[in-house]
Write a protein that binds this DNA or RNA. Structure first.
Length: 272
DNA sequence: TTCAGCCTGTCG
DNA sequence: CGACAGGCTGAA
């Protein structure tokens, strides 16, 4: 579900309304909640703290409270919605509700159909330490760093881009879109890429992500933003979810193959 | 580096 | 019914 552009959209929606608000109450709705969602529990320690800041790195969201940090990872189908998700949101179903965070005059709903999401609480000073495993955010990394990382590995470019420990934020939609626009076959090994090819990948990565954020993310199925609305970048998808359909450049049917354990759609003629 | 497994839903 | 789905983990 949410990749960098979707998580960024949610972040922007939430920070607009939550900064400075005080957390008054937390309700949980799943029996499995404590074991599955929360790494270290004790939600009570969060109460009566104000939201100072909301940050994102890769696909992680951090709510910085006064002396704790509440961390979310939305997995495949997690959603964070301000206001009551009933009504406008067709996705809403009580059995997918995981928790409600009640702020001064607002309620934040965390819902998750497939329950692959995660929530945990960390100490304020431990943010760096806990997330040092995570690679630089795809929008923050420089071309030079990107190129050096890429040449230091010898892996399939698709699996390289998906590996959150190297660069964070890309998932299956955006890697396929970036590789198609860069005319690079997802099976290429990183070490064999030329400077010019690396540049294409880097530039398309920046452009696709920026454009997708502008359009408030891709809603293929379940994704909705912090206001409970769909994004529109799916209308710009050239290959993702279009296997068998004609390649928008050459017209040959788009190929589909499992690469790096993920369904991958690409054009074997245009992507070399 | 592969692979099942974690879950629920949809589509053919 | 099987195949597949915006992700990630831990074990073989």
């Amino acid at each position: 579900m949410p990749e960098l552009p979707e998580v960024e959209t949610i972040k922007r929606d939430l920070e607009k309304r939550l900064i400075g608000k005080k957390l008054l109450k937390i309700e949980t709705f799943q029996e499995i909640f404590y074991s599955k969602y929360l790494k270290n529990l004790d939600l009570k320690t969060l109460l009566s703290q104000k939201v100072k800041e909301i940050r994102r790195k890769g696909k992680y969201l951090f709510f910085l409270l006064e002396n704790k940090i509440l961390v979310f990872h939305l997995g495949l189908t997690g959603a964070l919605i301000l206001g009551n998700p009933k009504g406008a949101n067709p996705l809403f179903n009580k059995k997918h509700l995981i928790l409600i965070l009640e702020f001064d005059d607002l309620r934040l709903f965390f819902i998750d159909i497939r329950k692959f999401g995660k929530v945990w609480i960390i100490e304020k000073e431990k943010l760096e330490e806990h997330f040092s495993f995570l690679g630089k955010d795809a929008l923050e990394i420089s071309f030079k760093e990107f190129k050096n990382l890429l040449l230091s590995k010898n892996r399939l470019i698709k699996s390289f881009l998906l590996d959150q420990r190297i660069i964070s934020g890309l998932g299956n939609i955006y890697t396929d879109e970036i590789l198609f626009r860069s005319r690079i076959n997802p099976l290429r090994k990183t070490k064999n890429l030329s400077e010019e090819e690396i540049k294409r990948i880097y530039q398309n990565m920046q452009e696709v992500l920026v454009k997708a954020i502008e359009l408030r993310g891709s809603s293929v199925k379940n994704y909705i933003n912090g206001k409970g609305e769909r994004g529109t970048f799916q209308e710009e998808h050239l290959v993702y979810g279009k296997r068998g359909r004609p390649c928008p450049i050459c017209g040959n049917p788009l190929q589909y193959k499992k690469i790096a354990q993920r369904g991958t759609t690409f054009c074997s003629y245009c992507q070399t």
